[in-house]
Write a protein that binds this DNA or RNA. Structure first.
Length: 460
RNA sequence: GGCCGGUUGGCAGAAUGGCUCAUGCAGAGGAUUGCAAAUCCUUCUAUAUCGGUUCAAUUCCGGUACCGGCCUCCA
């Protein structure tokens, strides 16, 4: 089989380029995960869904056993510390609970587990080593019990975010600490007070700066050079810029990530999601309205690189699309699945910088074709291809019957009884009773569908 | 203020130097149905604006307007 050529938009080169892995037998991707201090919001969910599709594509093209996907968990951070001060809960309790919520959300959204979900606190020793290397290589200095990265020692600093030192100074809104050689210098290690999380280090009891963990963990798990580094576009500066500087400083003659991929920000009704605007939604809240798969589909209807505008109308629309897809599957429940490959057009669309909207349009085509198919053999083929294709997007993972009926057995029994009563009425051409039952159920959000073989029902 | 990205039909959202600008939702009409639902068929509506390059631009280049992001913690 000829290798499929993947194209990705690289932030460093600022254009779409062909993707060539360092080692096609071990394609390596690192994606910045959440800081575990609160329930995941919609933005926290969108990014992993996007990289999940990329992961699925990489696995398809290079083979699952030839892909290593790392997504970190930041469990040491001042936001966690603040949460601890606010709530009185222990740091451990906060991070464990938030981590578990996150994993649950990811599972609901059908995000495949990465090969590694490393936690920052498990790699402190590696971070300390990294700081030592940076000091030894002349890229860092100590000041006021802190260790700082010396950006002037790295002439290429600023190239990822496409900004020069001068620009950064012009735009700086923060007060510059006077112990910094350059205002852009950032913290590698800082001291902790007795009650704060900390570790012993050559620079005293303290904790790492935010950016350090990703440099340390990617190096440890993927090597100093690896293929793809991803995250939200808000991380380009300063986070990724700083990671890049640290890693290249610590490991001279390496490139760190060879491809930088960033996802567009999520907005709510056209404006940035923020707590102060009152348009802040957690994944949990949104999933009370519609199933997780609808949210997943919705995320994929916009190209990942574009800003994504979330609306509840859009979410509802996504649910309606899935209803259509599951309708097609429901009608073919008795049709066996056969060995099938995903639609090549969908692979092609995804390989072209993850064009999920185009891929979804082909999914629609396939569903339409399936709905029109006559014989069972043809249907089996089409259904199987549809499922294989949907898998690439992580969609259609629910049972079609459960999708429409839910799992409430008591309710199911009650509905079935009413349907039987209505069937009797229909037999006697008692249309008034038949319609009355239809209306009773309709008010409860249950739609009846008559067919030559009997009546089925759905929740809408 | 600096840097970056965007502006396609009622809405969502792809693609493309030229032939009818995909797909979905919504709308209209029809088939089917006891009624309905689902499905199928047909169908209306768009490339922000002003210039330039070109035989030809929505697509390339430049200006303008508007929107968003980043410059500070952020997926």
């Amino acid at each position: 089989m000829t290798q499929i050529q993947i194209y990705l938009h690289d932030t460093l080169k600022q254009r779409k380029i062909p993707f060539t892995p360092i080692d096609k037998n071990n394609v390596r991707m690192y994606v910045c995960g959440p800081t575990v201090y609160d329930k995941a919001h919609l933005g926290n969910a969108k990014t992993p869904v996007v990289y999940d599709v990329l992961y699925r594509l990489l696995c398809y093209v290079y083979g699952k056993e030839h892909v290593t996907y790392v997504s970190n968990i930041t469990d040491v951070d001042d936001k966690i510390l603040n949460k601890h001060k606010e709530t009185g809960k222990s740091i451990h309790e906060i991070t464990e609970q938030t981590y578990n919520w996150y994993i649950e959300d990811m599972a609901k959204l059908n995000v495949l587990a990465p090969n590694y979900r490393p936690r920052a606190t498990e790699y402190i020793a590696d971070m300390i080593e990294l700081v030592k290397k940076l000091l030894a290589n002349g890229h860092a200095y100590e000041a006021e019990k802190q260790v700082l990265f010396d950006v002037d020692s790295m002439p290429s600093y600023g190239r990822l975010s496409g900004r020069s030192m001068k620009e950064m100074l012009a735009g700086a809104r923060i007060e510059v600490a006077d112990y910094k050689k350059n205002p852009a210098d950032f913290i590698l290690w800082k001291p902790s007070d007795a009650g704060q999380p900390g570790w012993d280090s050559p620079w005293g009891y303290g904790r790492p700066g935010w950016h350090l963990e990703c440099s340390a963990m990617s190096s440890k798990l993927l090597g100093n050079d690896f293929d793809i580094h991803g995250g939200g576009s808000d991380l380009i500066f300063p986070h990724h810029e700083n990671e890049l500087a640290q890693s290249c400083g610590a490991f001279p003659n390496t490139k760190f990530a060879h491809y930088w991929v960033h996802t567009g920000m999520l907005m709510i009704d056209g404006v940035k999601m923020s707590k102060s605007l009152g348009n802040f939604y957690t994944v949990e809240e949104v999933l009370q309205k519609e199933p997780a798969e609808a949210l997943r589909l919705l995320f994929l209807t916009t190209h990942y690189h574009q800003p994504f505008n979330f609306t509840f109308e859009g979410l509802h629309n996504a649910k309606a699309i899935l209803d259509k897809f599951y309708n097609a599957l429901l009608k073919n429940t008795d049709v066996p699945t056969v060995e099938a490959q995903p639609n090549p057009k969908i692979i092609e669309a995804l390989a072209d910088d993850l064009n999920t909207p185009l891929a979804l349009s082909y999914l629609h085509e396939m569903v339409n074709t399936l709905n029109k198919a006559e014989n069972t053999q043809e249907r089996a083929k089409l259904k199987s291809e549809l499922l294989a294709s949907a898998y690439m997007l992580g969609l259609l993972y629910n049972n079609p019957e459960a999708w429409f009926k839910g799992e409430n057995n008591e309710e199911t029994a009650e509905i079935e009884t009413l349907i039987q009563k209505r069937a009797d009425a229909k037999k006697n051409k008692d249309w008034a009773t038949a319609d009355a039952i239809r209306n009773i159920l309709k008010e409860r959000g249950i739609v009846l569908e008559d067919s030559p073989t009997g009546t089925t029902w759905k929740k809408i």
